[in-house]
Design a protein around this nucleic acid. Structure first.
Length: 551
DNA sequence: AGGGGATGGCACC
DNA sequence: TGGTGCCCCTCCCC
Protein backbone atom coordinates (compact mmCIF):
# COMPACT_ATOMS: atom_id res chain seq x y z
CA UNK A 1 0.00 0.00 0.00
CA UNK A 2 1.42 3.37 -0.90
CA UNK A 3 1.91 5.86 1.91
CA UNK A 4 -1.37 7.60 2.50
CA UNK A 5 -1.76 11.30 2.49
CA UNK A 6 -4.52 12.86 4.49
CA UNK A 7 -6.68 13.25 1.44
CA UNK A 8 -6.23 9.66 0.37
CA UNK A 9 -7.08 8.44 3.84
CA UNK A 10 -10.49 10.07 3.62
CA UNK A 11 -13.17 7.39 3.27
CA UNK A 12 -13.69 6.41 -0.33
CA UNK A 13 -17.01 5.27 -1.75
CA UNK A 14 -20.05 4.43 0.23
CA UNK A 15 -22.91 2.91 -1.66
CA UNK A 16 -25.54 1.80 0.74
CA UNK A 17 -29.02 0.52 0.13
CA UNK A 18 -31.66 2.53 1.92
CA UNK A 19 -29.17 4.06 4.21
CA UNK A 20 -27.78 7.48 4.39
CA UNK A 21 -24.06 7.64 4.02
CA UNK A 22 -23.96 9.65 7.20
CA UNK A 23 -25.18 6.76 9.30
CA UNK A 24 -22.84 4.93 11.54
CA UNK A 25 -21.36 1.59 10.73
CA UNK A 26 -23.15 -0.19 13.53
CA UNK A 27 -26.41 0.74 11.92
CA UNK A 28 -25.12 -0.48 8.59
CA UNK A 29 -24.34 -3.85 10.02
CA UNK A 30 -27.71 -4.20 11.67
CA UNK A 31 -29.33 -3.53 8.36
CA UNK A 32 -27.23 -6.12 6.63
CA UNK A 33 -28.46 -8.74 9.05
CA UNK A 34 -31.98 -8.13 7.85
CA UNK A 35 -31.14 -8.58 4.21
CA UNK A 36 -32.22 -11.76 2.60
CA UNK A 37 -30.44 -11.39 -0.70
CA UNK A 38 -26.87 -12.52 -1.19
CA UNK A 39 -24.37 -9.71 -0.84
CA UNK A 40 -21.60 -8.50 -3.07
CA UNK A 41 -18.76 -6.79 -1.40
CA UNK A 42 -17.02 -4.46 -3.74
CA UNK A 43 -14.59 -2.84 -1.42
CA UNK A 44 -12.08 -5.37 -0.24
CA UNK A 45 -11.06 -3.14 2.63
CA UNK A 46 -13.86 -4.32 4.76
CA UNK A 47 -12.31 -7.51 6.03
CA UNK A 48 -14.87 -8.10 8.73
CA UNK A 49 -17.62 -8.26 6.20
CA UNK A 50 -15.70 -10.55 3.91
CA UNK A 51 -15.22 -12.95 6.78
CA UNK A 52 -18.86 -12.66 7.72
CA UNK A 53 -19.96 -13.31 4.16
CA UNK A 54 -17.73 -16.35 3.94
CA UNK A 55 -19.25 -17.80 7.08
CA UNK A 56 -22.74 -17.29 5.78
CA UNK A 57 -21.73 -18.94 2.56
CA UNK A 58 -23.28 -16.33 0.35
CA UNK A 59 -21.73 -13.64 -1.80
CA UNK A 60 -22.39 -10.16 -0.45
CA UNK A 61 -23.96 -7.56 -2.76
CA UNK A 62 -23.83 -4.51 -0.59
CA UNK A 63 -21.19 -2.14 -1.74
CA UNK A 64 -20.17 -0.97 1.60
CA UNK A 65 -17.42 0.80 3.35
CA UNK A 66 -17.08 1.83 6.90
CA UNK A 67 -16.67 5.53 7.31
CA UNK A 68 -13.59 5.95 9.36
CA UNK A 69 -12.56 9.09 11.18
CA UNK A 70 -9.42 10.37 9.52
CA UNK A 71 -8.06 11.64 12.81
CA UNK A 72 -8.48 8.63 15.13
CA UNK A 73 -9.16 6.01 12.40
CA UNK A 74 -12.18 4.75 14.30
CA UNK A 75 -15.59 4.20 12.73
CA UNK A 76 -18.84 5.76 13.85
CA UNK A 77 -17.95 9.38 13.30
CA UNK A 78 -16.01 11.59 10.93
CA UNK A 79 -13.67 14.51 11.26
CA UNK A 80 -12.85 17.06 8.60
CA UNK A 81 -14.54 19.76 6.60
CA UNK A 82 -18.28 19.71 6.08
CA UNK A 83 -18.56 22.60 3.66
CA UNK A 84 -16.45 25.18 5.39
CA UNK A 85 -17.03 24.02 8.95
CA UNK A 86 -14.44 21.73 10.38
CA UNK A 87 -15.86 18.91 12.46
CA UNK A 88 -13.55 17.83 15.25
CA UNK A 89 -12.89 14.23 16.13
CA UNK A 90 -14.88 13.71 19.36
CA UNK A 91 -12.17 11.42 20.68
CA UNK A 92 -9.84 14.38 20.98
CA UNK A 93 -10.02 17.31 23.34
CA UNK A 94 -11.64 20.47 21.98
CA UNK A 95 -9.41 22.09 19.39
CA UNK A 96 -10.28 25.55 20.68
CA UNK A 97 -10.14 25.42 24.49
CA UNK A 98 -8.17 22.13 24.77
CA UNK A 99 -10.64 20.69 27.26
CA UNK A 100 -12.05 17.17 26.75
CA UNK A 101 -15.73 16.32 26.56
CA UNK A 102 -16.81 18.50 23.66
CA UNK A 103 -15.64 19.74 20.26
CA UNK A 104 -15.06 23.15 18.73
CA UNK A 105 -18.59 23.32 17.32
CA UNK A 106 -20.13 23.09 20.79
CA UNK A 107 -17.32 24.78 22.70
CA UNK A 108 -18.70 27.53 24.95
CA UNK A 109 -15.76 29.72 24.05
CA UNK A 110 -16.76 29.68 20.43
CA UNK A 111 -20.13 31.30 21.05
CA UNK A 112 -18.79 34.41 22.68
CA UNK A 113 -15.33 35.22 23.84
CA UNK A 114 -16.49 36.44 27.22
CA UNK A 115 -17.37 32.91 28.31
CA UNK A 116 -13.72 32.07 28.14
CA UNK A 117 -12.73 34.69 30.59
CA UNK A 118 -11.42 33.81 33.97
CA UNK A 119 -12.19 36.87 36.06
CA UNK A 120 -9.41 38.96 37.44
CA UNK A 121 -8.67 38.34 41.07
CA UNK A 122 -8.03 41.21 43.38
CA UNK A 123 -4.37 41.42 44.02
CA UNK A 124 -2.68 42.88 47.02
CA UNK A 125 0.47 44.58 46.00
CA UNK A 126 1.46 45.72 49.44
CA UNK A 127 5.16 46.05 48.96
CA UNK A 128 6.55 49.57 49.01
CA UNK A 129 8.03 49.37 45.55
CA UNK A 130 4.69 48.43 44.07
CA UNK A 131 3.00 51.29 45.90
CA UNK A 132 5.46 53.85 44.61
CA UNK A 133 5.25 52.46 41.13
CA UNK A 134 1.47 52.68 41.17
CA UNK A 135 1.55 56.24 42.46
CA UNK A 136 3.84 57.23 39.67
CA UNK A 137 1.88 55.47 37.02
CA UNK A 138 -1.71 55.95 37.99
CA UNK A 139 -1.99 59.66 37.06
CA UNK A 140 -1.18 58.67 33.50
CA UNK A 141 -4.11 56.35 33.20
CA UNK A 142 -7.45 58.07 32.81
CA UNK A 143 -10.19 56.48 34.91
CA UNK A 144 -12.65 56.44 32.03
CA UNK A 145 -12.06 54.24 29.09
CA UNK A 146 -12.20 56.07 25.78
CA UNK A 147 -14.63 54.81 23.14
CA UNK A 148 -12.82 52.44 20.88
CA UNK A 149 -12.38 53.43 17.27
CA UNK A 150 -12.06 50.27 15.21
CA UNK A 151 -10.43 50.34 11.77
CA UNK A 152 -12.95 48.01 10.20
CA UNK A 153 -12.69 48.63 6.46
CA UNK A 154 -9.95 47.79 4.01
CA UNK A 155 -8.86 51.15 2.62
CA UNK A 156 -5.96 49.94 0.47
CA UNK A 157 -3.84 46.88 -0.12
CA UNK A 158 -0.92 45.33 -1.93
CA UNK A 159 -1.85 41.87 -3.10
CA UNK A 160 1.03 39.40 -3.30
CA UNK A 161 3.50 42.11 -2.43
CA UNK A 162 6.00 39.69 -0.92
CA UNK A 163 7.12 36.47 -2.54
CA UNK A 164 6.74 34.59 0.73
CA UNK A 165 4.46 35.06 3.72
CA UNK A 166 4.67 38.24 5.76
CA UNK A 167 6.32 37.78 9.15
CA UNK A 168 6.36 41.25 10.72
CA UNK A 169 5.16 44.81 10.27
CA UNK A 170 6.32 48.15 11.58
CA UNK A 171 5.06 51.71 11.07
CA UNK A 172 7.54 54.46 10.41
CA UNK A 173 8.13 56.46 13.62
CA UNK A 174 7.56 59.89 12.05
CA UNK A 175 6.16 59.47 8.54
CA UNK A 176 2.58 58.40 9.14
CA UNK A 177 2.10 56.72 5.77
CA UNK A 178 5.08 54.43 5.63
CA UNK A 179 4.69 50.78 6.51
CA UNK A 180 7.58 48.34 6.67
CA UNK A 181 7.09 44.63 6.22
CA UNK A 182 9.37 41.66 6.56
CA UNK A 183 8.91 38.24 5.01
CA UNK A 184 9.95 34.62 5.31
CA UNK A 185 12.61 35.07 2.67
CA UNK A 186 14.27 37.88 4.62
CA UNK A 187 13.10 40.65 2.33
CA UNK A 188 12.12 44.07 3.60
CA UNK A 189 9.21 45.96 2.08
CA UNK A 190 8.76 49.71 2.31
CA UNK A 191 5.32 50.91 1.26
CA UNK A 192 3.79 54.38 1.21
CA UNK A 193 0.11 53.52 1.59
CA UNK A 194 -1.05 57.04 0.72
CA UNK A 195 0.61 56.79 -2.65
CA UNK A 196 -0.35 53.17 -2.96
CA UNK A 197 1.90 52.34 -5.91
CA UNK A 198 5.00 53.65 -4.15
CA UNK A 199 6.52 50.49 -2.82
CA UNK A 200 9.85 48.75 -2.85
CA UNK A 201 11.16 45.43 -1.63
CA UNK A 202 14.78 45.20 -0.55
CA UNK A 203 16.06 41.69 -1.16
CA UNK A 204 19.59 42.16 0.08
CA UNK A 205 18.88 42.59 3.78
CA UNK A 206 18.59 39.00 4.96
CA UNK A 207 18.71 35.54 3.43
CA UNK A 208 15.95 33.94 5.49
CA UNK A 209 13.07 34.76 7.83
CA UNK A 210 13.00 38.33 9.03
CA UNK A 211 11.64 37.65 12.50
CA UNK A 212 11.49 41.07 14.14
CA UNK A 213 12.30 44.67 13.30
CA UNK A 214 12.37 47.96 15.12
CA UNK A 215 13.21 51.52 14.17
CA UNK A 216 16.25 53.14 15.66
CA UNK A 217 15.30 55.60 18.40
CA UNK A 218 18.27 57.72 17.33
CA UNK A 219 17.53 57.97 13.64
CA UNK A 220 14.09 57.49 12.13
CA UNK A 221 15.53 56.52 8.77
CA UNK A 222 17.18 53.41 10.18
CA UNK A 223 15.56 50.10 10.99
CA UNK A 224 17.12 47.17 12.84
CA UNK A 225 16.10 43.62 12.06
CA UNK A 226 16.79 40.14 13.43
CA UNK A 227 16.73 37.16 11.11
CA UNK A 228 16.93 33.38 11.05
CA UNK A 229 20.09 33.81 8.99
CA UNK A 230 21.73 34.63 12.32
CA UNK A 231 22.43 38.29 11.64
CA UNK A 232 21.23 41.62 12.94
CA UNK A 233 20.93 44.27 10.26
CA UNK A 234 20.67 48.01 10.25
CA UNK A 235 19.02 49.28 7.09
CA UNK A 236 18.58 52.75 5.65
CA UNK A 237 14.88 52.88 4.70
CA UNK A 238 15.47 55.37 1.87
CA UNK A 239 18.27 53.58 0.09
CA UNK A 240 17.92 49.99 1.26
CA UNK A 241 21.60 49.91 2.10
CA UNK A 242 22.00 47.38 4.87
CA UNK A 243 24.72 46.88 7.41
CA UNK A 244 25.27 43.63 9.25
CA UNK A 245 25.93 44.29 12.95
CA UNK A 246 26.42 40.75 14.09
CA UNK A 247 26.69 37.39 12.40
CA UNK A 248 26.28 34.25 14.48
CA UNK A 249 27.08 31.94 11.56
CA UNK A 250 30.38 33.25 10.22
CA UNK A 251 31.39 29.79 9.03
CA UNK A 252 28.24 29.20 7.03
CA UNK A 253 25.97 26.18 7.11
CA UNK A 254 27.31 23.28 9.16
CA UNK A 255 24.00 21.62 9.84
CA UNK A 256 21.02 22.47 12.01
CA UNK A 257 22.76 21.77 15.31
CA UNK A 258 25.15 24.67 14.86
CA UNK A 259 23.15 27.11 12.74
CA UNK A 260 21.96 29.97 14.95
CA UNK A 261 18.81 31.90 14.21
CA UNK A 262 17.80 35.23 15.73
CA UNK A 263 14.19 35.71 16.75
CA UNK A 264 13.41 38.12 19.60
CA UNK A 265 14.66 41.68 19.26
CA UNK A 266 14.22 45.06 20.95
CA UNK A 267 16.16 48.25 21.46
CA UNK A 268 17.18 49.79 24.75
CA UNK A 269 17.54 53.45 23.85
CA UNK A 270 19.11 54.46 27.16
CA UNK A 271 21.84 51.91 26.83
CA UNK A 272 22.21 52.38 23.10
CA UNK A 273 21.89 48.66 22.65
CA UNK A 274 20.08 46.26 20.37
CA UNK A 275 18.97 43.17 22.27
CA UNK A 276 18.55 39.97 20.29
CA UNK A 277 17.93 36.37 21.23
CA UNK A 278 18.51 33.13 19.37
CA UNK A 279 17.05 29.66 18.95
CA UNK A 280 19.37 28.13 21.56
CA UNK A 281 18.12 30.23 24.48
CA UNK A 282 20.75 32.97 24.44
CA UNK A 283 20.56 36.76 24.64
CA UNK A 284 23.06 39.03 22.87
CA UNK A 285 23.68 42.74 23.27
CA UNK A 286 24.86 44.83 20.34
CA UNK A 287 26.13 48.35 20.89
CA UNK A 288 24.55 50.74 18.39
CA UNK A 289 27.49 53.16 18.42
CA UNK A 290 30.27 50.70 17.81
CA UNK A 291 27.94 48.32 15.95
CA UNK A 292 29.59 45.54 17.86
CA UNK A 293 28.64 42.84 20.30
CA UNK A 294 29.09 43.65 23.97
CA UNK A 295 29.63 41.00 26.60
CA UNK A 296 29.01 37.30 26.32
CA UNK A 297 25.78 35.60 25.29
CA UNK A 298 23.53 35.00 28.30
CA UNK A 299 21.31 31.96 28.66
CA UNK A 300 17.84 33.39 29.38
CA UNK A 301 15.62 30.44 28.43
CA UNK A 302 15.98 26.67 28.54
CA UNK A 303 19.15 25.68 26.76
CA UNK A 304 18.42 24.74 23.18
CA UNK A 305 15.01 26.44 23.12
CA UNK A 306 13.96 29.29 20.91
CA UNK A 307 13.57 32.77 22.40
CA UNK A 308 10.91 34.30 20.15
CA UNK A 309 10.25 37.63 21.82
CA UNK A 310 12.05 40.43 23.67
CA UNK A 311 10.50 43.66 24.94
CA UNK A 312 11.97 46.48 27.01
CA UNK A 313 9.63 48.17 29.50
CA UNK A 314 8.49 51.55 28.11
CA UNK A 315 8.83 53.26 31.51
CA UNK A 316 11.81 51.41 32.96
CA UNK A 317 13.89 50.25 29.99
CA UNK A 318 16.12 48.14 32.20
CA UNK A 319 13.21 45.78 32.73
CA UNK A 320 13.31 43.21 29.98
CA UNK A 321 10.57 40.76 29.07
CA UNK A 322 11.40 37.63 27.12
CA UNK A 323 9.35 34.69 25.94
CA UNK A 324 10.02 31.45 24.17
CA UNK A 325 9.56 27.81 23.45
CA UNK A 326 10.28 26.65 26.98
CA UNK A 327 6.68 27.70 27.81
CA UNK A 328 7.79 30.72 29.85
CA UNK A 329 7.77 34.47 29.65
CA UNK A 330 10.44 35.89 31.92
CA UNK A 331 11.15 39.30 33.43
CA UNK A 332 14.74 40.45 33.85
CA UNK A 333 16.72 43.42 35.10
CA UNK A 334 19.35 43.91 32.42
CA UNK A 335 21.65 45.77 34.81
CA UNK A 336 22.36 42.46 36.46
CA UNK A 337 21.41 39.74 34.09
CA UNK A 338 22.85 36.26 34.05
CA UNK A 339 21.54 32.74 33.56
CA UNK A 340 18.86 32.07 36.16
CA UNK A 341 18.60 35.66 37.41
CA UNK A 342 15.07 36.33 36.17
CA UNK A 343 12.81 38.37 38.46
CA UNK A 344 9.70 36.45 37.44
CA UNK A 345 8.94 33.40 35.34
CA UNK A 346 5.44 33.45 33.87
CA UNK A 347 4.37 29.86 33.24
CA UNK A 348 2.25 28.82 30.27
CA UNK A 349 1.15 25.36 29.20
CA UNK A 350 2.66 25.67 25.73
CA UNK A 351 4.98 27.80 23.62
CA UNK A 352 4.67 31.56 24.25
CA UNK A 353 4.47 33.37 20.91
CA UNK A 354 4.72 36.88 22.31
CA UNK A 355 4.91 38.89 25.52
CA UNK A 356 4.50 42.66 25.60
CA UNK A 357 4.47 45.26 28.37
CA UNK A 358 1.52 47.64 28.17
CA UNK A 359 2.44 50.66 26.04
CA UNK A 360 1.87 53.56 28.47
CA UNK A 361 2.55 52.45 32.04
CA UNK A 362 4.40 49.26 31.27
CA UNK A 363 2.70 47.76 34.31
CA UNK A 364 0.68 45.08 32.53
CA UNK A 365 1.85 42.18 30.42
CA UNK A 366 -0.04 40.57 27.56
CA UNK A 367 1.10 37.14 26.43
CA UNK A 368 -0.05 34.94 23.56
CA UNK A 369 0.50 31.23 23.99
CA UNK A 370 -0.03 28.30 21.65
CA UNK A 371 -2.45 26.84 24.19
CA UNK A 372 -5.14 29.11 22.65
CA UNK A 373 -5.06 31.58 25.49
CA UNK A 374 -4.20 35.22 25.91
CA UNK A 375 -2.94 35.95 29.41
CA UNK A 376 -2.88 39.26 31.21
CA UNK A 377 -0.47 39.65 34.10
CA UNK A 378 -1.57 42.72 36.01
CA UNK A 379 1.25 44.21 37.94
CA UNK A 380 4.87 43.48 37.47
CA UNK A 381 5.21 43.95 41.21
CA UNK A 382 2.28 41.77 42.17
CA UNK A 383 1.80 38.06 42.37
CA UNK A 384 3.07 36.61 39.15
CA UNK A 385 2.34 32.98 39.94
CA UNK A 386 -0.74 33.03 37.76
CA UNK A 387 -2.21 35.38 35.18
CA UNK A 388 -4.88 37.77 36.38
CA UNK A 389 -6.92 36.86 33.33
CA UNK A 390 -7.03 34.17 30.70
CA UNK A 391 -8.94 34.62 27.47
CA UNK A 392 -9.58 31.61 25.26
CA UNK A 393 -8.95 32.58 21.66
CA UNK A 394 -8.24 30.52 18.56
CA UNK A 395 -4.66 30.99 17.44
CA UNK A 396 -3.09 27.58 17.93
CA UNK A 397 -1.17 27.04 14.74
CA UNK A 398 2.40 27.61 13.86
CA UNK A 399 3.53 25.59 10.92
CA UNK A 400 2.93 27.29 7.57
CA UNK A 401 1.76 30.45 9.31
CA UNK A 402 3.53 33.28 11.07
CA UNK A 403 2.81 32.78 14.78
CA UNK A 404 -0.11 34.84 16.10
CA UNK A 405 0.76 37.63 18.51
CA UNK A 406 -1.72 39.73 20.45
CA UNK A 407 -0.63 43.37 20.36
CA UNK A 408 -1.66 46.38 22.43
CA UNK A 409 -3.26 49.41 20.84
CA UNK A 410 -0.53 52.01 21.41
CA UNK A 411 -3.12 54.81 21.30
CA UNK A 412 -5.35 53.40 24.01
CA UNK A 413 -4.35 55.23 27.18
CA UNK A 414 -6.49 52.90 29.26
CA UNK A 415 -4.31 49.99 28.14
CA UNK A 416 -7.14 47.62 27.50
CA UNK A 417 -7.50 47.17 23.75
CA UNK A 418 -5.59 44.42 21.99
CA UNK A 419 -5.67 43.07 18.46
CA UNK A 420 -5.01 39.52 17.26
CA UNK A 421 -5.84 37.50 14.17
CA UNK A 422 -8.09 34.47 14.54
CA UNK A 423 -7.22 31.03 13.26
CA UNK A 424 -10.52 29.17 12.98
CA UNK A 425 -12.88 30.41 10.35
CA UNK A 426 -16.41 31.52 10.92
CA UNK A 427 -19.41 31.56 8.62
CA UNK A 428 -19.87 35.13 7.41
CA UNK A 429 -22.73 35.36 5.01
CA UNK A 430 -21.85 31.98 3.58
CA UNK A 431 -18.12 32.53 3.26
CA UNK A 432 -15.49 31.06 5.54
CA UNK A 433 -13.42 33.98 6.76
CA UNK A 434 -10.77 34.33 9.40
CA UNK A 435 -11.44 37.61 11.22
CA UNK A 436 -9.07 39.88 13.08
CA UNK A 437 -10.25 40.28 16.66
CA UNK A 438 -10.21 43.35 18.88
CA UNK A 439 -10.38 42.30 22.51
CA UNK A 440 -10.90 44.39 25.63
CA UNK A 441 -8.45 42.67 27.92
CA UNK A 442 -9.87 44.41 31.01
CA UNK A 443 -13.16 42.57 30.55
CA UNK A 444 -12.13 39.79 28.20
CA UNK A 445 -14.86 40.77 25.76
CA UNK A 446 -14.63 40.72 22.03
CA UNK A 447 -15.01 44.36 21.02
CA UNK A 448 -15.00 43.78 17.28
CA UNK A 449 -14.18 41.19 14.69
CA UNK A 450 -13.21 42.56 11.33
CA UNK A 451 -13.07 40.81 8.01
CA UNK A 452 -13.43 41.39 4.29
CA UNK A 453 -15.03 38.89 1.90
CA UNK A 454 -12.01 39.21 -0.38
CA UNK A 455 -9.55 38.17 2.29
CA UNK A 456 -9.97 34.43 2.56
CA UNK A 457 -6.55 33.77 4.04
CA UNK A 458 -5.60 33.96 7.70
CA UNK A 459 -4.16 37.25 9.02
CA UNK A 460 -1.68 36.40 11.76
CA UNK A 461 0.34 39.64 11.59
CA UNK A 462 -1.36 42.80 12.78
CA UNK A 463 -0.06 46.20 13.81
CA UNK A 464 -2.00 49.20 15.07
CA UNK A 465 -0.72 52.62 14.05
CA UNK A 466 0.97 54.55 16.86
CA UNK A 467 -0.92 57.77 16.08
CA UNK A 468 -3.67 57.22 13.51
CA UNK A 469 -6.77 55.04 13.53
CA UNK A 470 -5.14 52.61 11.17
CA UNK A 471 -4.53 48.89 11.30
CA UNK A 472 -2.02 47.17 9.07
CA UNK A 473 -2.37 43.45 8.59
CA UNK A 474 -0.28 40.86 6.85
CA UNK A 475 -2.12 37.90 5.41
CA UNK A 476 -0.08 35.36 3.52
CA UNK A 477 1.97 37.46 1.05
CA UNK A 478 -0.37 40.47 1.02
CA UNK A 479 -0.67 43.64 3.07
CA UNK A 480 -3.87 45.44 4.01
CA UNK A 481 -4.55 48.86 5.50
CA UNK A 482 -7.75 49.14 7.49
CA UNK A 483 -9.46 52.39 8.53
CA UNK A 484 -12.68 53.11 10.38
CA UNK A 485 -15.69 53.16 8.10
CA UNK A 486 -16.80 56.64 9.13
CA UNK A 487 -13.33 57.97 8.35
CA UNK A 488 -13.17 56.52 4.87
CA UNK A 489 -12.08 58.85 2.14
CA UNK A 490 -15.00 61.15 1.27
CA UNK A 491 -14.30 60.77 -2.43
CA UNK A 492 -14.14 57.15 -3.51
CA UNK A 493 -10.98 56.50 -5.38
CA UNK A 494 -10.88 54.20 -8.32
CA UNK A 495 -10.08 50.65 -7.41
CA UNK A 496 -6.81 50.56 -9.23
CA UNK A 497 -5.82 53.51 -7.10
CA UNK A 498 -6.38 51.58 -3.89
CA UNK A 499 -5.19 48.12 -4.68
CA UNK A 500 -1.87 47.08 -6.08
CA UNK A 501 -1.65 43.55 -7.36
CA UNK A 502 1.80 42.05 -7.72
CA UNK A 503 2.90 38.86 -9.38
CA UNK A 504 1.69 36.88 -12.38
CA UNK A 505 -1.97 37.88 -12.54
CA UNK A 506 -1.31 41.56 -12.17
CA UNK A 507 -3.01 42.67 -15.37
CA UNK A 508 -5.96 40.37 -14.94
CA UNK A 509 -6.68 41.41 -11.42
CA UNK A 510 -5.79 45.01 -11.71
CA UNK A 511 -9.30 46.20 -12.51
CA UNK A 512 -11.08 43.80 -10.29
CA UNK A 513 -13.34 45.23 -7.72
CA UNK A 514 -12.04 44.88 -4.25
CA UNK A 515 -13.56 45.48 -0.85
CA UNK A 516 -16.61 47.54 -0.02
CA UNK A 517 -20.08 46.65 -1.15
CA UNK A 518 -20.27 44.74 -4.35
CA UNK A 519 -22.69 42.41 -5.96
CA UNK A 520 -20.94 41.87 -9.23
CA UNK A 521 -19.90 38.43 -10.34
CA UNK A 522 -16.21 39.09 -10.04
CA UNK A 523 -16.57 39.62 -6.36
CA UNK A 524 -18.55 36.43 -6.08
CA UNK A 525 -15.81 34.47 -7.74
CA UNK A 526 -13.24 35.63 -5.30
CA UNK A 527 -15.36 34.41 -2.44
CA UNK A 528 -15.96 31.10 -4.13
CA UNK A 529 -12.27 30.54 -4.26
CA UNK A 530 -12.37 30.23 -0.50
CA UNK A 531 -14.36 27.72 1.47
CA UNK A 532 -18.08 28.22 1.37
CA UNK A 533 -20.81 27.24 3.73
CA UNK A 534 -23.69 25.19 2.46
CA UNK A 535 -26.37 27.42 3.87
CA UNK A 536 -26.25 31.02 4.80
CA UNK A 537 -25.73 31.74 8.43
CA UNK A 538 -28.38 33.48 10.45
CA UNK A 539 -26.02 34.45 13.14
CA UNK A 540 -23.90 36.76 11.11
CA UNK A 541 -24.39 39.90 9.12
CA UNK A 542 -27.05 39.92 6.47
CA UNK A 543 -25.81 43.05 4.81
CA UNK A 544 -22.58 43.47 2.97
CA UNK A 545 -21.19 45.07 6.07
CA UNK A 546 -17.75 43.72 6.54
CA UNK A 547 -17.58 44.16 10.25
CA UNK A 548 -19.46 43.04 13.26
CA UNK A 549 -19.07 45.19 16.28
CA UNK A 550 -20.05 44.22 19.78
CA UNK A 551 -20.04 46.94 22.34
C1' DA B 1 -8.42 21.01 -9.63
C1' DG B 2 -5.89 18.21 -6.86
C1' DG B 3 -1.55 16.60 -5.15
C1' DG B 4 2.65 17.77 -2.94
C1' DG B 5 6.10 20.41 -0.46
C1' DA B 6 7.77 23.45 3.09
C1' DT B 7 7.61 23.29 7.83
C1' DG B 8 7.22 23.77 13.81
C1' DG B 9 6.01 21.49 17.99
C1' DC B 10 5.91 17.79 20.75
C1' DA B 11 5.40 13.00 22.40
C1' DC B 12 7.87 9.09 22.68
C1' DC B 13 11.77 6.11 23.06
C1' DT C 1 19.23 14.35 25.62
C1' DG C 2 18.75 13.36 20.24
C1' DG C 3 16.37 11.22 16.89
C1' DT C 4 12.18 10.09 14.77
C1' DG C 5 7.59 10.07 13.48
C1' DC C 6 3.23 12.04 13.88
C1' DC C 7 0.14 15.88 14.14
C1' DC C 8 -2.53 17.85 10.44
C1' DC C 9 -9.11 23.75 10.62
C1' DT C 10 -2.33 26.47 5.33
C1' DC C 11 -0.85 28.36 1.14
C1' DC C 12 1.01 28.29 -3.14
C1' DC C 13 2.54 26.25 -7.24
C1' DC C 14 2.53 23.06 -10.82
Amino acid sequence: MPPQTRRMAFPKVVIERDTDSEQSSSEEEEEEEELEEPEVLVESENEEKVEEAKKKGKAPITISLKKVCKVCKKPGHEAGFKGATYIDCPMKPCFLCKMPGHTTVTCPHRVATEYGVIPATHKNTRNALGYVFKRQIRPRIPPIKPAYVIPDQVSCAVIRYHSRRVTCLEFHPTNNNILLSGDKKGQLGVWDFRKVYEKVVYGNVHSCILNNMKFSPASDGTVYAASSDGTVSSTDVETGIALSLMNLNPDGWRGPSTWRMLYGMDINAEKGAVLVADNFGFLYLVDTRSNDRTGKPILIHKKGSKVVGLHCNPVQPDLLLSCGNDHFARIWDIRRIEAGSSIYDLAHSRVVNSAYFSPVSGSKILTTSQDNRLCIWDSIFGNMNSPSREIVHSHDFNRYLTPFRAEWDPKDSSESLAVIGRYISENYNGAALHPIDFIDISTGQLVAEIMDPNITTISPVNKLHPRDDVLASGSSRSLFIWRPKEKSEPVEQKDEGKIVVCGRDEKKRRHRKFGGESDDSDDDKSIRKGKRFKSQSKSHSKSSLSVKVRR
